[in-house]
Deep mutational scan, measured.
Amino acid sequence: MSIQHFRVALIPFFAAFCLPVFAHPETLVKVKDAEDQLGARVGYIELDLNSGKILESFRPEERFPMMSTFKVLLCGAVLSRVDAGQEQLGRRIHYSQNDLVKYSPVTEKHLTDGMTVRELCSAAITMSDNTAANLLLTTIGGPKELTAFLHNMGDHVTRLDRWEPELNEAIPNDERDTTMPAAMATTLRKLLTGELLTLASRQQLIDWMEADKVAGPLLRSALPAGWFIADKSGASERGSRGIIAALGPDGKPSRIVVIYTTGSQATMDERNRQIAEIGASLIKHW
């Protein structure tokens, strides 16, 4: 058993032996400061991975655009179909130039040979490839079927209504393609630790998130040596930015963190910096 498999397999085991986890309101002070700095709403939640207890939250039940963070949920739905014998990670999917949409750094290189379902999930999560996400959405029946999958998990909040890139429109008060921090954190925890997916599929999902290559300026920039993080970021119109993550010290995840912001006029660099500073406060007061 690899170190990674050891880590995921023991998450339920550690729940019975973990020390009490204490919240630190200092992080919420930073979240509120980020709102002031960005001139935008910020949603935040910090969840204990083992118990599911909410440690801190700010606007946990307000809607925010999901942006590309939905791609983790999408690959969770794909893995659920794999577990049920309805899909194979090794199945190759062929597509054409007409299928390519904006920001497809991986799929645009494989027009001649296509990509496997496994490769598409990797591209969608680690590189946020939009065509990969659309191709995967097609395999499960489209955005409405992803919403149905989430409903069956008990998440009646999170919804996907459109495809890439239209889902990134982020119109104020538009509930399409949105979630709430509390709903996203709970759903992510179920995917990573619950019985919905097999152990192998849970491991695969967290491996893809751990290999994320496009979230460096966010929480990863504040991470001390030896800490673990598996994450997925997102960005969209109207100053929207977000990240969902499982992270913790000693090389294993122990908390879920979800951060969303929307409605800012700030630059992408400034949005990144504010999220990184929230992460730094979280780690300092861990």
Rank of each mutant, 00 (worst) to 15 (best):
S2W: 09
Q4G: 15
Q4R: 14
H5C: 13
R7W: 09
I11Q: 07
I11D: 03
P12L: 13
P12I: 15
P12V: 12
P12C: 14
P12K: 11
F13Y: 13
F14I: 15
A15C: 14
C18F: 06
L19K: 11
L19C: 15
L19A: 15
P25R: 08
V29A: 15
K32N: 07
G39D: 10
A40I: 06
R41H: 15
V42E: 04
Y44F: 10
Y44S: 01
K53A: 14
L55N: 05
S57L: 06
P60R: 09
E61R: 15
E61L: 13
P65H: 08
L73G: 04
S80Q: 15
R81G: 05
D83V: 01
A84R: 15
A84T: 12
Q88H: 14
R91T: 06
I93L: 14
S96M: 11
Q97Y: 13
Q97E: 15
L100C: 07
P105T: 07
V106F: 06
V106R: 06
T107C: 14
T112I: 14
D113V: 10
M115L: 12
V117I: 14
C121L: 05
T126H: 04
D129H: 00
T131S: 11
A132G: 04
L136Q: 00
L137S: 01
T139A: 10
T139I: 11
G142A: 02
P143R: 13
E145T: 09
H151Y: 14
M153G: 07
M153Y: 07
H156D: 13
H156A: 11
T158D: 00
R159V: 04
R162T: 04
R162S: 06
W163E: 06
E164N: 02
E166N: 09
E166T: 09
E166F: 12
E166Y: 12
E166C: 10
L167T: 07
L167M: 11
L167W: 02
I171T: 15
P172S: 10
D174N: 05
D174Q: 05
D177H: 01
D177N: 04
D177Y: 00
T178A: 02
T179Y: 00
M180T: 15
P181G: 00
P181Y: 00
A183T: 08
M184R: 00
T186L: 14
T186A: 15
T186M: 15
T187R: 05
L188I: 09
L188F: 11
L188P: 00
G194V: 05
L196R: 13
L199A: 15
A200P: 14
A200H: 15
A200S: 15
S201I: 09
S201E: 00
Q204V: 11
Q204S: 09
I206T: 11
D207R: 13
W208R: 00
W208Q: 01
A211G: 12
K213S: 10
K213L: 11
V214H: 07
A215V: 03
A215H: 05
P217L: 08
R220Q: 02
R220N: 02
S221G: 08
A225P: 15
F228V: 05
S236E: 07
S236G: 03
E237M: 08
G239K: 04
G239T: 08
R241G: 03
G242H: 03
G242Q: 01
I243N: 01
I244W: 00
I244R: 01
I244H: 02
P249G: 03
D250T: 08
D250W: 08
K252N: 10
K252D: 07
T262A: 12
G263E: 09
S264G: 15
A266S: 12
T267Q: 08
D269E: 14
E270G: 06
R271V: 12
R271Q: 12
Q274L: 14
E277A: 12
I278M: 06
G279D: 02
A280G: 09
S281G: 05
L282V: 11
K284W: 07
H285F: 11
